Computed example of a mutant assay.
Amino acid sequence: MPLSLYNPFDDLIFDEHFCFLSGALTTEKMPVFPQWLMDKFKFGDERIEMMDKQKTYVYADLELPCSPEVKNAFDALDEKIQAAYKKDYEGMAALDELLIFQWTGRMLYGLLYYEMRYERDRLLRQGEEFALSTQLKQRFGNFHLMLQSIVESVSFVGRKPWSIVVFPLKYSADIFSYRDDAINLLFSFGVNGFGFVACLQDNGIIAEKQKELLEKMKGQVLHPIQFEELYARFHYSDYILQYNPEYKIERKDNAITIEAIPIEKKGSKPIFGFWDEDIFAQLLANYWSVYGIEREDILQFQKPPLSFLENPYSKDFIKPEAIDLPF
């Protein structure tokens, strides 16, 4: 009998009595952000905004209802990630990308879960119905199915659904930097020692788009401002991606296999839309604000856009040690 798994996006079920991953009735909960991470970097008492900027939560209060089986699986995954973390870049780079996908996916799904609950409750108070577009239901449903690989017979064959890039990174102190886009399933994570950027449902096309730059980066320990620029490039590339990722999903022998279908140009429509330097500069300025760099500094009249990754004239990679900014 083909394996049939729980999908909360079919009926938009985000109830605290049902395990977020399996749908089983439960009274247990697990934190959205791993406890060891909140303890290590002391951000559990800080607040996080929802997308509409009207609602905030304390990080430590963000919890997902989960079955004992699911909690145990993520606890075991946390131990593997924490062990790799202690070995800096070499430890993280040696990890199977699936583990990074599952670990990152747990946090992104947790944020998505709270976005869904908040929007549902907000609309309910206004007497309106909570609904998602068919496209979003499919995207989030596929993501949820992929995340179930941590406890179910769900495996990946051929091309993977994600772009995950791990690289050495230098901070001057015990700093934890992360950014997320739960709706578009993007995440960046940086500490002193390593960083990674993850697009969890792009079928690898964004890493392919940035392949030339990623090759230039090899062997370099990135400056944090370069890390922010790299994520901005991934984020904006996802924004202008003009095709929805598709998957070949096979259910047989009580197991499910998922293969990402390569994103290819159809007709005259390019894979990526026009790269608007003005929009990208505004996005980048948001990430570079800690350095006092504004959009007007990035785009100056009769000058190429400012970059700390590539020399705008020669396109050579900019050596991190040549960047005279704090790290």
Rank of each mutant, 00 (worst) to 15 (best):
W162L: 06
W162S: 04
S163I: 07
S163E: 05
I164Q: 08
V165Q: 06
V165D: 05
V165Y: 14
V166T: 14
V166C: 11
V166K: 07
V166M: 04
F167W: 01
F167V: 02
L169E: 10
L169Y: 02
L169N: 12
L169G: 05
K170H: 13
K170L: 05
Y171L: 14
Y171E: 09
S172T: 12
S172P: 02
D174I: 11
D174S: 15
I175K: 13
F176R: 03
S177I: 00
Y178A: 09
R179F: 10
D180N: 15
D180F: 12
A182L: 11
A182M: 14
I183C: 10
N184R: 15
N184K: 15
L186S: 06
F187A: 04
F187S: 01
S188P: 00
F189K: 00
F189N: 05
G190P: 09
G190L: 02
G190K: 03
V191Y: 02
N192R: 05
N192A: 11
G193T: 01
G195Q: 06
G195F: 03
F196C: 03
V197R: 00
V197I: 14
A198F: 05
A198I: 01
A198D: 00
C199S: 13
L200S: 01
L200A: 00
L200I: 03
D202I: 05
D202T: 08
D202C: 10
D202P: 03
N203L: 06
N203I: 07
N203S: 15
N203E: 09
G204S: 07
I205D: 05
I205M: 09
E208F: 05
E208G: 02
K209Q: 13
Q210T: 03
Q210N: 10
K211E: 12
E212P: 00
E212M: 01
L213R: 06
L213N: 08
L214V: 02
L214F: 08
E215N: 12
K216Q: 14
M217L: 15
K218W: 04
G219C: 02
G219D: 10
Q220N: 05
Q220C: 07
Q220R: 03
Q220P: 00
V221C: 11
V221M: 10
V221Q: 11
L222D: 07
L222Y: 07
L222K: 07
H223Y: 11
H223R: 09
H223D: 10
P224H: 11
P224V: 08
I225P: 13
I225D: 09
Q226H: 12
Q226G: 10
Q226M: 12
F227T: 13
E229C: 15
E229N: 13
L230S: 07
Y231K: 04
A232Q: 06
R233A: 06
R233K: 13
R233M: 14
F234V: 07
F234H: 08
